[in-house]
Simulated scan of single mutants.
Amino acid sequence: MDDLATPAFLALCNMLERRAGLRYATVLSFVERDGVVHGRRDFTTVPDVYPTGTLKPLPQDEWLDKICRRHQMHVANGADAIRAAYPDHDTVFALGAARLANFPIVIDGRCRAIFNVAQADRDDWEALAVEAVDAGAVIARLLQY
């Protein structure tokens, strides 16, 4: 990513943290390799845990279909929902998250990335859901740098 894009992403997350509460956030953009869709982490607020530049295969399942094909957010609220949806749930819990949400980043009508946000129990979900719409538009612009 552009040297200016990362500080802008971190400033955006700082604003989200102040307005709604945020444990951490990442952005995965889509890369196809050998017919398999991977997520490449372009931005992160926790680089020691979820570093940028890494690729991970994304499951071709209802989760990906909901976010990428139907352009709907996915929310895992509570420990059971997080365990069911995320194989790295132990890491998620260690970072203090009790709720995860994945927002599609749509550019020119196609889902190009996922904005992943994590909150603690005490954080304001309604405020984050509203703010994330505008945040997604900013992230779409940052990905175009």
Score class of each variant (00 low, 15 high):
A79D: 13
L10A: 12
L22R: 00
R33P: 00
A76E: 02
V133C: 02
D108G: 12
E17G: 03
Y86G: 09
W63K: 00
T45V: 09
E62I: 10
Y50A: 00
V46F: 00
E126Q: 15
R83K: 01
V31F: 05
C68V: 10
N14R: 04
E131M: 06
M1E: 12
G136Y: 12
D48T: 08
G53T: 11
D80Q: 07
P7Q: 05
E131Q: 01
T26H: 09
Q60N: 14
F115A: 02
E126D: 12
F103W: 11
A98F: 03
N14K: 07
A8G: 09
A129D: 09
A135W: 08
P7N: 04
R33Y: 08
V46I: 06
M73V: 13
D123M: 05
P51W: 04
Q72R: 07
D134L: 06
H71T: 01
G39Y: 13
L4I: 14
D90R: 15
L16H: 02
D90T: 10
E62A: 12
L55H: 08
P51N: 00
A76P: 01
I105K: 02
D108A: 13
T54R: 15
A94G: 08
L12W: 09
H38A: 06
V49Q: 04
D42A: 05
P57F: 01
V75W: 04
V106Y: 12
G136W: 06
A113H: 09
P51E: 01
F43L: 10
H74T: 07
C68Y: 05
L100D: 02
A98Q: 15
R83H: 05
A8V: 14
A20V: 14
D108T: 11
R83P: 02
N14Y: 04
A132R: 02
R41F: 03
A129K: 13
D42I: 12
V106R: 05
T44C: 10
R110I: 14
V31T: 13
P59A: 08
H38M: 03
T26F: 03
A101Y: 12
R33N: 09
D88L: 04
V106W: 11
A137E: 15
A113T: 07
Q144T: 15
D123L: 07
V106I: 12
A94F: 07
L28C: 05
H89Y: 15
